[in-house]
Amino acid sequence: MSTSAQPLLEVRHLKKYFAMGQGIKFRKKGTLKAVDDVGFTINKGETLGLVGESGCGKTTAGRTIVRLYEPTAGEAIFEGKNIYSQDEGGMQEIRRKIQMIFQDPYSSLNPRMTVGDIIGEPLDIHGLAKGKERTERIYELLNIVRLNPEHANRFPHEFSGGQRQRIGVARALAVQPSFIIADEPISALDVSIQAQVVNMLEELQEKMGLTYLFIAHDLSMVKHISNRVAVMYLGKIVEVARSSELYKNPLHPYTKALLSAIPIPDPDVEAERKRIILEGDVPSPIDPPAGCRFRSRCKVSVERCKEAEPEFLDAGGGHMVACHLVK
């Protein structure tokens, strides 16, 4: 996997706030800052892993990039064009190049459509193929994800979880995209099936020169597939580094805690392993702690963490981290 330093997608200061308690009901009002000033770059042909706890905003970030949600502020430059300033026609162009794979293979396929129609829908929407050509393209896509052409007339409920996820992949590939956002594509699958799907994604990347944003919470799987990893906490990115670097030398206390939670498949080592156990829950994103957001659960926080938000700085060699304690 060659990573030429040519950026395919550049996200800058992306913010997505949800207004709470709107309308006529008198509820507690506030703003849920799901994604708060997030920025990252993804180079052509590489895989960026995005990890973090549930509710930290990784899914929202992914969905905001494809404009399933309109961003509150910020920009996303894809192939030199800002996604958020596109009109309907320009957006349609971009939608052909950015596709998504969803987490739950049971709800991401319309139960009333045959697999052939599900995979054929992108072709219909973008007017890419009709009639016989369309059928052939569907068979070809099924073949790419290692399903049989006879499966085209079946309904989604007849397939297993792994097979359904591969149908989802085939649907995403139908428009020949260059960038795929995989939103926890394996977390709903059986462990034995996870590797099957991940390996297929890697193979496809090599064959078709795809670029991935791989959203997940399983660190070992992310390490396996990603070139670089971004760690997110409560709507902000706290650390970005090449994946080998991040796993060897985590700088942010949150990353350290996350990494210490990965079990090691060796009982002797596992028994010796010391875990950093985070206390308490993730604070509410409606009213996040002032200063550093992680300070309420951080074992090494100091006075300065309360006062100022740490800047996101290069700690050497492109290893970016947002922590006051890192020099």
């Binding site: 957006m91 950015i98 596709q99 998504m100 969803f102 987490q103 991401s108 829908e121 649907r171």
Partner: peptide, 12 residues
């Protein structure tokens, strides 16, 4: 539902 979101990302 996710399949509706998927249709939206496809530009339906």
């Amino acid at each position: 539902q996710d399949y509706v979101l998927a249709a939206r990302t496809l530009g339906a």
